[in-house]
Every structure is written in structure tokens, then in C-alpha cells.
Design a protein around this nucleic acid. Structure first.
Lengths: 186, 186
DNA sequence: ACCCGATATGCAATAAATTGCATATAACCC
DNA sequence: GGGTTATATGCAATTTATTGCATATCGGGT
């Protein structure tokens, strides 16, 4: 999988500890890559064994020690190699849609509640993304240029979330009609 | 994971063999759930051990035998239980975006080629979805009503693919500018 | 004083997914 | 006749991801 390559990409930009990487995954790749701390620590261990990365232990007096990882020449080559090969399309697995698909088994109200819950999440995510975008657009032209590619990934997040919310509108409208149809039957 | 519940949802609607389920995943849940034949066969085996499903062997003279699975009462209950609990949000892992994020390492042309390749795939998927939608919209009102929820999942697919293509337009425009900027430098 | 959250890392066990291999028939095209 | 695709199923090994537990410090709130 390409958790390995996501880590290499992050370390290529800047060295960091496992915890740093976790935070960077959450803050910067949040929309398109999710990894737990377990996944990251295990992956780092494995990548170190493969000599793709190296680390130095940084003693800290106040907090626990941290291992600061950086990419090696081998790791850099591996990343370049990966970059030049076509990536395979994503596997999509969306449990919410499975639930909607089989939604006849429960009440429209229950489906509505579920959608509403996810809507809140998606709306919050979108708001976060829009705030980051506003910051980017307010930055100097030179910085915008260097961050253009990460910005484009952010755009994917924004368009994706907006699309999700538009879909939720459709679903909620359809479920509302179902609810009233059911009420009429009684 | 809820591959289990996706299988239960499919068997709830109609019994079928492993191969049938594979085809149904591809044809009907294609946008939102992907499973390999290995995953399905292994899952069926496990679910049979858990007594969520049962099967009858159907001998066929011309083709290999098939095991026709159907949902049990226990399986039905398990599905209902799952339906009534909130599903957790999806984990997104999009390798293409990782590549774009680290895109400074390769030429804009290479990124363009990669995007173009994915664009073709997404456009084809969208066309397929639109054809299914046209069929749905041409069906009698009664059928539209019974298939409304699956139709809403299809809508997710359509809106999602359209959103992806809109994003690809943005990316391609941005990459084109990069290419010409690079050409000017020389 | 005590609990909680953030920082910081990791082991061990289990569960899930992928990859590679394996078999067998029928239909269709070249 | 030979190759490919579709039907139909499965084992075994490996890789990945998840879950549960464990440790340790600091700062802030109650």
C-alpha cells in the first residue's frame, strides 16, 4: 500500500517523529489520507528496516524522548519510482451507502437522523477546509505558488464535501416525502 | 468491518452464490462498495460459521456446482441491529492525491498524464451511472418508488463523479499554466 | 489533590485484505 | 486447434490494519 509513500512524501518535505507525522497526516492530508498512530509507528519501524528512512533520538528533559526520522537516499529513490508509476484507482467502501441501500428495513426517520449526523460532520469538515483556503488565498503570491499542489488537494476536499452536502439535500428531501407519505397512510 | 453487513443486505434482498454476490457488488454497489472474490468467499465461509447465513448446493451438469446462500433469522437480526446503530464515517485513502501533494518531484507533464488517465476512468464511470439513471427515470412510478433508496445511492455516485471531473478541470488548468511557465523559463 | 487531555512511543493479538496459485467447463473468436 | 473470457469456487501465505493494552510527563481545569 502507499501509506509507505505518503510517509515518504511527508518526510521528503520535512523530517519528523512518528507523532509529528500523525499530526501532519491529520492536519494536511486529512482529507485524502488517514492513518492511526499504530499504523504510523509500525510503518516507520518497517521502513527503517528497509533503510528507506533513518532516525536520530532527541532527548528531551521535560517530555519523553522522540525519534526524529528523515528520508534516506534509498527512500528518496523509492518515492521517485513510485511517483513515476501510475497509481491504481481507489477502493471506495462507504458503509453509510450500504445502510441507505438497505434502508427499507428501518424507518425513514432513522435514516434521516443518520444522514443529519453525517451532515454535521461534513459541514464542519468543509468549514475547516474553507478556512484553510481563505488563509492560502490571503498569502503572498510566491507562497501560493510553492503551495499550489497541496492547495489543489485541498480543493478536492472542498469540492468533495460540497458535493456530499448537495447529495444530502437530495436525500433529505426524498426522505421527507417518505415520512409524510407514511403519516398519510395512518 | 461491514463487508459482512453489505453481504447481509444483498442476501436480504435475494439469495445467491458467492459469484452472484461478486457480480451484484460490481453492478449495484460498485460506486460505494468494492470487494474481491477472495474477500467474498472468505467472508461467506466465516458468516456461515457464525450462522448468519446458510446455503444449499446446487448441482449443475454443465458448469461447476454453486453454493446458493441465503440469510438466516440470526443474520436478519444482525443486519437490523447494524442498521439501527450509527455507522462510523469512512476512512478515505486516496493515493492520487498523495502523488499530487508531492508533485513537485516530477514534471507537470507527468502529473497531467496521470490526471488524464484517471479522468477517462471517472468519465466512463459517470457515463455508466447516467445510463442507469436514465433507465430508472424511464421506469414506471411504482418501480421508481421501490427502488428509490438504491437510486439515492446512485445519485451519490453521479454527484461524486461529476465533482471529481470538475476538480480535474481545475487541476488541469493549473498544471497547464505550470507547463507554460516552465517553457518560458527555457 | 485528582482527573483529563495532549505529548510521545510502543508491544501483542486479532481481524481483514491482498496476492498468488489452483481447478474445471463452456462459449466464442481467430 | 488454440487463446480468451465468463462461470464458479477455493486454499495458503503474506501484508495491512485494528483493537486493546501499557507507560510516562506536563499543563490545565475542578
Amino acid at each position: 500500500m502507499s501509506l509507505k509513500h505518503a510517509v515518504l512524501a511527508l518526510l521528503e518535505a520535512e523530517e519528523g517523529s512518528g507523532y509529528d507525522l500523525l499530526k501532519r497526516f491529520q492536519a494536511r492530508l486529512g482529507y485524502f489520507w488517514n492513518a492511526s498512530h499504530q499504523q504510523i509507528y509500525q510503518q516507520l519501524k518497517k521502513m527503517h528496516a528497509e533503510q528507506l528512512i533513518e532516525f536520530e533520538v532527541e532527548s528531551q528533559t521535560d517530555k519523553p524522548d522522540r525519534k526524529v526520522y528523515s528520508i534516506t537516499e534509498t527512500g528518496h529513490e523509492e518515492l521517485l519510482k513510485w511517483m513515476s508509476q501510475p497509481v491504481k484507482p481507489n477502493k471506495v467502501n462507504d458503509a453509510l451507502l450500504v445502510k441507505l441501500y438497505a434502508g427499507e428495513l428501518v424507518s425513514p426517520e432513522q435514516l434521516q437522523a443518520e444522514i443529519a449526523h453525517h451532515r454535521t460532520r461534513h459541514q464542519n469538515t468543509l468549514n475547516t477546509f474553507l478556512a484553510i483556503e481563505a488563509e492560502y488565498l490571503a498569502s503572498p503570491a510566491a507562497e501560493q505558488k510553492t503551495l499550489q499542489l497541496p492547495y489543489l488537494t485541498l480543493r478536492r476536499g472542498i469540492l468533495g464535501e460540497q458535493s456530499w452536502l448537495n447529495w444530502a439535500d437530495e436525500v433529505e428531501a426524498a426522505l421527507l416525502k417518505r415520512t409524510s407519505a407514511e403519516a398519510t397512510k395512518r
